[in-house]
């Protein structure tokens, strides 16, 4: 029962955060498109998508059933964070290595905007508390 509630809260928090991350990434991409062209827009989307994919992988890891004790939950969350950082680093590495027309500043902009927008999910958790 506890696991189900926890999974629901984690999923809602992630989906709320992901919504804001997508909005911010698209905004940065549109700005990059108007300033520096198509490659810059694709680079910004690649940066934002790396963070969103990493967050999704971490969320899937955090949702896995754990013992229910605080220590086990913490260990599971730390594992989720490690998976998230590894996925983001690998995706960035692949992008930098194989995308020839990369515009670095746009990618960093999309990455930073998306990473910082992940805090927006906190509102979902707070609303959950109010209910």
């Amino acid at each position: 029962m506890m696991d189900k509630i926890t999974n629901t809260i984690t999923s809602r928090a992630f989906s709320k955060a992901a919504r804001w991350q997508i909005i911010i990434t698209v905004l940065i991409s549109v700005v990059s498109l108007s300033v520096a062209g198509m490659n810059a827009a694709i680079s910004a989307i690649a940066g934002g998508a790396a963070v969103i994919a990493g967050g999704f992988a971490g969320m899937m890891m955090a949702r896995r059933p754990n013992g229910g004790t605080p220590g086990a939950i913490l260990f599971s969350l730390l594992k989720a964070e490690v998976i998230k950082v590894i996925v983001i680093a690998m995706l960035l590495l692949v992008t930098f290595k194989y995308y020839r027309g990369l515009v670095s500043l746009s990618l960093i902009g999309g990455l930073a905007g998306s990473a910082l927008a992940s805090g927006a999910g906190l509102r979902a958790v707070n609303n959950e508390n109010d209910e």
């Binding site: 984690t10 971490g58 229910g68 969350l77 989720a80």
Partner: peptide, 25 residues
């Protein structure tokens, strides 16, 4: 615990954000 777990998951991402940006740079 369930509420705290959701918050910890999100805040971990927020704390890690500067590190991830640093990795990108």
């Amino acid at each position: 615990i369930p509420t705290l777990q959701g918050k910890v998951f999100l805040l971990m991402g927020l704390i890690d954000a500067p590190f991830i940006i640093g990795v990108g740079l």
